[in-house]
Design a protein around this nucleic acid. Structure first.
Length: 722
DNA sequence: ATAGACATTCTTTTT
DNA sequence: GAATGTCTAT
């Protein structure tokens, strides 16, 4: 027996050893998905069914791609480096670099990240004198990306109203601007390489014949364009092996289309649908809860996780008075767990939205517990790093107006708004880049601009230097170093700039791109692509034994011994913006499913009666997801809050600094107070969130959850304390 | 050109 | 509440 196949369970083995056919693997959480994917590649190669260059394996994140490469390298005695295993964007970048001419791109085309894209759009709106109130750059970016992700160029977009027609026009102008500047955004990487393959038959046939096996990770997260891209490449008879979990589809809001799983099944006539349902991660109670929750979603492909591990501990539920109380409880609990010998790094605090981390962080800090928050600014996204990268981008391509605009006056060199305006006018008149238009600007501003142009020229002269030295040189000559040396808070930024030099050095050491003779550094171009495509690790203390704080979204794919899910309240989780639509609610439920299945041994669910949000105290009902977990799996750490609402009345006398209902007048005499749970004959269960008037005029505002927010006159409405 | 005041917005996020 | 963006005064 092939040692690769040892210890695989039956469906895993079946999936790994499928012949060259299309297959859809429904891989539940914790069912060994990555193992199946990598083992399949290793098995195909080791049994000589395919050679390494015949494999195309696609993931969504760099982390997943790296993980696959590392595991594969451990299974096979081959050099994994050159294999086509990577993210959609990384592989498309590779394709476009190799065929930039056919794709209509300059050799050193630059990649705009989302922030770059937004500033490019802002610049475009300004140059066209478009009101950015009516066309917010954020929304316009979203629109453009959504079209591209459907595979639609401006001419193909159907516009039925003036607003959309105008946006399509702006989409077109944006494309022209990008093309002139020699830059592509993330979605363009995909679309451009799709079009390249579609239109260039010899090229398409080449890759179709080359890739015999296409493997896709997290298939439920693919968008329409990615699916088309895969279909095109598989069109030459390759086998497609798609691994995904429709229950973990939580990115519909950014274009992911679970429908691709059904389409794939139908269009590729997949008759190998394999379910991986045995879970190796969590104890039974946790899985039972997850299964019970997700069962409420109709139209699933269907799957039920099970485990050989025992039921384990019950799921602990804590009802807090307030967000601060919730945080304090968690901090105390974690402290106790830590004392009992649990590694802090094995404990995760999950929440629906980032704003929730504040209260948690505060409590953890007071308790002296080290923690790490995911989701902040990443290395290559930091302002000072982006500034340095902008200078480097101008070395590679002087026409990159986004980079130009970013640093033309940073550090300040007396080039103000009016000089830039005349430069922009000149560029527009000549249909040229900002850099190329400098000669046209006269006067004092023109002199300063010419000095800037000379600076870029001088920097370009250094392009032959080894990359780390070039970076150092740029930081020095641009004045960035001096600028941050003079700044009070500049120490950390200087350190980050030094870190950028280090990053360049290790990039050269690892990637080892050869520098072509006499040419502008292709090493530089690869490094810049790397900086755009892989924004780098999140900041701070890796390696320390720290608590892990993150949103449920960023927890996907991770696992922890102990998990706290915080803020389980209607309006927060499920989020209020998602509640009104069935589809939105189902995605929230899948999100809850993802959250639950992160835990191996112990799971806490926490919610609060009052919470500060957007600077206001809010009163929420417990999340409906709590009701969807079977009673017998739960162990209430506070008196049970039933379907009737909160068990513990929130007395207005907390001494712990919690938000207290401010309007006492509303409670006097009426028998009701803010924060109290009430029932109404028509609207059902709700929470009083506000009150005004008194005596016979008294009115209260009640949050009825699904039934909405209502103002009710106490003299008319029959409210009962719940 | 820059600091300080005022207004506005506020899910989730990788590439 | 905090962060970003725009306007205003120096």
């Amino acid at each position: 027996m092939n040692p690769l196949l040892a210890n695989l369970n039956e469906p895993q083995l079946a999936a790994v050893t499928l012949p060259a056919v299309h297959a859809l693997i429904l891989a539940g959480a914790g069912s060994g998905k990555t193992r199946v994917l990598t083992t399949r590649i290793a098995w195909l190669i080791s049994t000589s069914q395919v050679s390494p260059p015949g494999i195309l394996a696609v993931t969504f994140t760099n982390k997943a791609a790296k993980e696959m490469l590392t595991r594969l390298a451990g299974m096979l005695p081959i050099n994994v480096k050159g294999m086509w295993i990577g993210t959609f964007h990384g592989l498309c970048n590779r394709l476009l670099r190799a065929h930039h001419r056919d794709a209509g791109l300059p050799q050193l085309f630059q990649i705009l990240d989302s922030a770059d894209q937004q500033s490019a759009v802002k610049r475009l709106l300004k140059s066209l004198n478009v009101d950015d109130e009516k066309f917010p750059p954020r929304e316009l970016c979203h629109f453009i990306n959504a079209q591209k992700e459907q595979g639609l160029r401006p001419a193909a977009v159907e516009a039925w109203d003036d607003w959309t027609r105008k946006r399509v026009g702006l989409y077109e102008a944006y494309e022209a601007q990008c093309q002139r500047e020699g830059v592509v955004d993330f979605a363009e990487l995909l679309l451009r390489s799709y079009e390249l393959l579609e239109r260039n038959e010899p090229l398409r046939r080449h890759y179709q014949e080359r890739f015999r096996h296409i493997l896709v990770d997290e298939f439920q997260d693919t968008n329409k364009l990615q699916y088309k891209w895969l279909s095109l490449l598989a069109g030459g008879g390759a086998s497609m092996f798609a691994v995904g979990d429709d229950d973990q589809s939580i990115y519909a809001f950014r274009g992911a289309d679970v429908g691709n799983m059904r389409d794939f099944e139908r269009e590729f006539k997949v008759d190998n649908l394999i379910r991986l349902e045995q879970n190796y991660r969590s104890h039974g109670n946790i899985l039972d809860a997850a299964n019970a929750i997700i069962k409420n979603n109709p139209s699933r492909l269907g799957k039920n996780l099970w485990t050989e591990a025992g039921a384990g501990e019950p799921i602990r539920v804590y009802e807090a008075y307030s967000d601060l109380d919730e945080a304090r409880f968690i901090a105390e609990e974690v402290k106790a767990l830590s004392r009992d010998g649990h590694a802090r790094a094995e404990i995760a605090l999950l929440y629906r939205s980032n704003a929730q981390s504040r209260a948690l962080e505060h409590a953890l800090f007071s308790a002296g517990l080290p923690y790490r928050v995911y989701g902040g600014l990443r290395f290559f996204e930091r302002a000072e790093v982006k500034h340095a990268l902008a200078y480097l981008r101008l070395i590679a391509n002087t026409d990159d107006d986004t980079a130009f605009a970013r640093v033309v006056n940073f550090p300040t060199r007396g080039i103000g708004a009016r000089s830039l305006e005349s430069l922009q006018d000149a560029a527009k008149a000549a249909n040229s880049s900002l850099h190329a238009a400098i000669a046209q600007v006269s006067g004092a501003g023109g002199v300063k601009l010419k000095a800037f142009a000379e600076l870029i020229l001088k920097l370009r002269d250094a392009a032959h230097l080894p990359l780390p030295e070039l970076v150092d040189h740029v930081i020095e000559l641009s004045g960035l170093r001096a600028h941050y040396q003079n700044e009070k808070e500049g120490q950390e930024r200087l350190a980050n700039l030094d870190e950028l030099i280090n990053a360049a050095a290790s990039f050269v050491a690892e990637e080892g791109v050869a520098n072509e003779e006499g040419e502008l550094s292709s090493e530089l171009a690869s490094f810049l692509a790397h900086a755009s495509l892989e924004a780098g690790e999140h900041q701070a203390g890796e390696g320390d034994d720290a608590l892990q704080l993150m949103t449920v979204h960023s927890a996907k794919g991770l696992e922890f011994n102990i998990v706290f899910i915080c803020g389980l309240e209607e309006g927060l989780f499920p989020h209020e913006n998602a509640i009104s639509e069935e589809k939105g609610l189902e995605e929230e439920r899948r999100l809850m499913y993802v959250a639950l299945t992160r835990a191996r041994q112990r799971l806490y669910l926490a919610f609060a009666q009052t919470r500060m949000l957007h600077g206001q105290t809010r009163y929420n009902l417990p999340s409906r997801f709590l009701d969807e977990v079977p009673e017998e799996l739960l162990k209430w750490l506070t008196p049970r809050a039933g379907k009737q609402g909160f068990a513990v009345p929130s007395a207005p006398t907390f001494s712990n600094g919690d938000a207290m209902p401010r309007r006492r007048e509303s409670s006097s005499g009426s028998g009701f107070r803010i924060g109290q749970s009430v029932t109404h004959a028509k609207f059902g269960l709700g929470v009083i969130v506000n009150a005004e008037g008194g005596g016979s005029d008294a009115r209260v505002q009640v949050n009825f959850g699904t039934a909405g927010m209502k103002w009710l006159a106490l003299s008319v409405a029959k409210l009962e304390a719940a």
